[in-house]
């Protein structure tokens, strides 16, 4: 039961970019299209699950005074691994994400989960936690990227969905559009959760 809960909390209760408001740097930068968003999200998920598992396995061996250093080494290794694999098998995606792949190392979500969860919990729970949060992150990036791609470029996953007469609102795929769409999304999610809470109290 608790493993399921650790898994599902990543989708709403602590949905990374919107509830924890962590890891915003890649969120803002790479969500210019749904594909980039999903790619970045999946790369992060891979690193998150692997580092959570390893940190959880090693949590009794790693002395607490050097735990952050050990976590960083573990995370960095997985990130380099992702970078190499992506270069070998998904080169166009690698080019699109560029510097933000190596920057996963300093993504606060990953170090945050290692420190706050995997360093204190067992293997199964940590893996579930990593997978849940990672997929939550991926979906958030996918949705955000999708919205920006549709409005800013008239396409979704590279397909024209709004017809040729649509004049793309390029602002949305530029940097300011990232802030605007993130803000709107945050407001929307806060509003929904406030409504849910109010209903819960009434019942």
């Amino acid at each position: 039961m608790s493993v399921v809960k650790e898994f599902t909390k990543g989708f709403w209760d602590i949905l990374p970019p919107f509830r924890l408001v962590l890891g915003l740097c890649p969120v803002l930068a790479v969500t210019t299209s749904a594909e980039n968003g999903a790619g970045m999200g999946l790369a992060t998920t891979f690193v998150l699950v692997c580092s959570n598992v390893l940190v959880s396995l090693l949590r009794k061996i790693i002395p607490s005074k050097v735990r952050i250093a050990a976590y960083i080494v573990i995370i960095a290794s997985f990130v380099v691994m992702v970078e190499l694999l992506m270069q070998a098998y998904a080169y166009p995606l690698y080019q699109a994400l560029g510097i933000f792949i190596p920057l996963i190392v300093v993504n606060c979500i990953i170090l945050g989960r290692a420190e706050a969860f995997a360093g204190k919990n067992g293997l199964a729970a940590s893996a579930a936690d990593g997978l849940g949060i990672g997929l939550g992150f991926t979906i958030s990036l996918f949705v955000l990227g999708g919205v920006r791609e549709i409005i800013g470029n008239g396409t979704f996953l590279g397909l024209h969905v709004l017809g040729t007469s649509y004049e793309p609102f390029v602002f949305m795929v530029r940097a300011p559009g990232a802030f605007v769409s993130l803000g709107v999304m945050l407001a929307l999610i806060n509003w929904i959760s406030a409504r849910l809470e109010a209903r819960g109290r009434k019942a």
Partner: peptide, 25 residues
């Protein structure tokens, strides 16, 4: 000891991955 071991293991793994992906890259 622990930090050294972790770093060594990480180095070894990465060297192996680098070797495997070198051609495809």
């Amino acid at each position: 000891v622990v930090l050294t071991l972790i770093c060594a293991a990480s180095g070894l793994t990465l060297a192996a991955v680098y070797d495997v992906t070198k051609g495809p890259i």
